[in-house]
Design a protein around this nucleic acid. Sequence first.
DNA 1: CATGCGTATTACAGAATAATTACAAGCGCG
DNA 2: CGCGCTTGTAATTATTCTGTAATACGCATG
Lengths: 243, 243
Amino acid sequence: MGQMAATADSVLTQKQPRVLVVDDESAIRDMITFALQRAGMECHAAADAQEALLAISENRPDLVLMDWMMPGVSGLELTRRLRKDPFTADIPIIMLTAKVTEDDKVTGLEAGTDDYIIKPFSPRELMARIRAVIRRTSPADEDGQIRQGDLTLDTVSRRVLHDNQELHMGPTEYRMLEFFMSHPGRAYSRNQLLDHVWGANAYLEERTVDVHIRRLRKALEPAGVSAYLQTVRGHGYRFMAEN
Amino acid sequence: MGQMAATADSVLTQKQPRVLVVDDESAIRDMITFALQRAGMECHAAADAQEALLAISENRPDLVLMDWMMPGVSGLELTRRLRKDPFTADIPIIMLTAKVTEDDKVTGLEAGTDDYIIKPFSPRELMARIRAVIRRTSPADEDGQIRQGDLTLDTVSRRVLHDNQELHMGPTEYRMLEFFMSHPGRAYSRNQLLDHVWGANAYLEERTVDVHIRRLRKALEPAGVSAYLQTVRGHGYRFMAEN
DNA sequence: CATGCGTATTACAGAATAATTACAAGCGCG
DNA sequence: CGCGCTTGTAATTATTCTGTAATACGCATG
């Protein structure tokens, strides 16, 4: 649960998610595209499975939103194909469907769909689901790497990399960066940082955090990314790769 | 551990909820007040319906916790009255009761109660119910975002966005906007704003509010939405996205 | 259209808050 | 033990924010 909450943050703060919409009805494609772009996502559209596969191979999306019912290759079938190819296997998929029976749910989930949205749906609901799925999927570090912007944190070798160049920093700064990069975009108070980075039973001055922020920024300086570490005046700090 | 902490944060990341306890037994009032304050909530108490109505009109709480059985006006009756007044109609209410029959449940729910807690209850359960109700009624979606018109307030990253563009403002203006966006369309007097935005024990000039309204408007200017912040002449201010 | 009350706007000095620097104590390791 | 590196705190400086008061403006009322 904490996990969920923790990962939840990253949602909107990550790089802008790239979504591919696959639906044969252009009206729906346009509606969704409009809604997503308004919400700051990068959105592409495909009218059928063929187009979709092409678009995906050219430009791997972070999420695919597809209609269940399509002429030719169905959404279900398309899902199966995507799951088969290692290149696309872990792209999350949300299915748009008018079907509501349990049977379909089971079939869909077996085929590797991550979520369902039953038509008709509100743009608001759509957005919420998309965010939920992206959240659930994204901070995934397959081999222990966390990437944010130009920074890569390798939790296995315990190194921070930029352009294959290692950035040197003290243990405390490393832990702090790891925490921040695991929860990008979320603002933390100094006390929360003391809790999360130092541990629940460390009793230090709040201002100590400032100093370590300073040290971390200095360590990130050579990579030119010290601006990722932002001050939230009156509250604390936040790590954000972009914007 | 990070788990718990993370979860707790996400709940308390928000502004601290203001709860009003209405119970004729001072022992219970004190117990609850103590528990809530320990949990970081702002808690006020009233001994009967009359006091409650007064307290509410002075200082609109985010939630009312009331005893079913009270001398004079009963909890049920108080609920009805609160529901009738537009100013208080959507304040969530949790009823404390020893009654357990189905009949009572039905009556209570019809009157507009949001939840029940049957005595005796543990502080832990109390807290859980309160959080659940507040979460359910809060305008913030699951990502901690509050949207009103063209404005998005991201409580997680502590940013105010318009077209993915961040609007900069001071901490006080941010808190004020958060309050307004959480209670859209509702007019507040300067004193109420001082209470809700600055906290119960801030003693400032009423006119100070004007200045911060001005500052907030100025901050909203680049987004072209400063008109959302409306003056209610002779009373105070109101935030309204549409019109 | 003049008057009076309430609001908007501006300026400013003191208060808060954050950045930066310096330093002494602690730690791990050869 | 002594060296280098790390840490927490305190002191100092830089920056931003805040509350107040002074002034200008606007609206309603007679």
